[in-house]
Design a protein around this nucleic acid. Structure first.
Lengths: 217, 217
DNA sequence: CACAGTCTTGACCAAATGGTCAAGACTATT
DNA sequence: AATAGTCTTGACCATTTGGTCAAGACTGTG
């Protein structure tokens, strides 16, 4: 009786909370090892639940992975999302760069999940690449082209400009160990992030012909 | 007799040739799936040899992986290797960028193996990062700093400049599917490579204040 | 408090995994 | 042509893998 009473204070976390914890653990696992290298047992251990519990919430490893991919994509390009063509290119691009880098710092696992999927050949995101992502890119490049037509910035390939920003920012998530080792830093803290953001913003804006400073050649 | 004669023309490939073929197959496999996701059986199939043959040439999966890593690293930064500080920064950087991109196109697997190892946290290359690679980087950044002191180029963080070049070029190897999908191209051929190289060179040189063209702001 | 539905979990399974081994095939040397 | 050393391979093994299942625990509702 008493024991039952006591047990009844078990205060079991809500089913949703557990599903969330599993999803978060899965993100870390898939980020580090990729789909094929990920182990369900490790996901369970990270989440602190028995393995069969995962299969209650997610039908299979593949479904779990797809769920992770989905949440990852959702938070992908928050910024730069609705851009006013009348806005200042420099400000818009700066905001975009800083936001992407901030994401890379705050949630490197998301970036790595995506990187793994791409390296692997995007077996689960091929449609997405050719539909939603392409559409997203096209509206963005349209604005950039407009800016270039109005001589507001240097004429450059807009698609490749976006690629460069993606690559340069995600680098600090995906290759974090390398960057930290070579910069002789212990962790990717706020200071390193700020230094990096400042470098990227000023370098890329200069590349876009948007710098207030002039070159001294 | 006859059959023996006929068989003796079997012309079995040299042991070294097979070891090489295994290594090449392993590079592709590790590139696509990462260490934990790689399957010895698939390596064997790709190489066209029975699985035990792999274990004759490479003691274990780990040893095979280390061998792949080694050959990958060797071909890593061929270019930009001995730079004359008196040389023209623009020319040196352009050569470096074009070489890195050419590598990314010709051997994307190598880039992906390295990317996987970094994403995973560099469990096998941590020492390398803190020794050889750091040394390599330091001699390069020293030259760049010299150029900046002599006002030959814009003052920027040299380490992060190198990172940006690495990231921007390797992107076309690691994220090849994405780039091709978004550029609406079927394959990363010579034309795409040239367009990309031209973009990267002019954009990055402008970022370094090394462009002949002036901005029109 | 009983009952039904939701959620959890220990015990288990078939298949796949990295790796072994001993028998055989090939090659160079004498 | 016999021999010794190198290389190849079919059959096999212990362990790990993703996944199942049925029994039980918990929770809300009448």
């Amino acid at each position: 009786m008493v024991s039952t009473e006591a047990r009844s204070i078990s205060n079991r976390p809500s089913s949703d909370a557990i599903a969330q914890r599993i999803l978060a653990s899965a993100k870390d696992e898939f980020a580090q090892f990729g789909y094929e290298g990920a182990r369900m047992q490790r996901v369970a251990d990270r989440a602190g639940v028995p393995k069969p519990n995962i299969h209650y919430h997610y039908k299979s490893k593949r479904r779990l992975y797809l769920a992770v991919l989905e949440t990852t994509i959702e938070s992908w390009n928050r910024a730069f999302d609705d851009v006013d063509p009348e806005a200042n290119p420099a400000e818009v691009l700066e905001a975009f760069i800083r936001d992407k880098l901030s994401q890379a710092q705050q949630d490197p696992a998301a970036s790595r999940v995506f990187a793994n999927e791409m390296i692997q050949g995007a077996p689960n995101l091929n449609t997405y690449l050719h539909t939603d992502m392409q559409a997203w890119l096209q509206t963005r490049t349209a604005v950039i082209r407009q800016w270039m037509d109005q001589n507001k910035m240097q004429k450059v390939d807009p698609e490749r400009l976006i690629f460069l920003i993606w690559a340069a920012t995600q680098h600090y998530a995906d290759f974090q160990v390398q960057a930290l080792a070579l910069l002789n830093r212990a962790q990717f803290n706020e200071q390193v992030a700020t230094e990096t953001a400042d470098f990227l913003v000023s370098f890329i804006l200069r590349g876009c012909g948007l710098s207030s400073e002039r070159t001294n050649t």
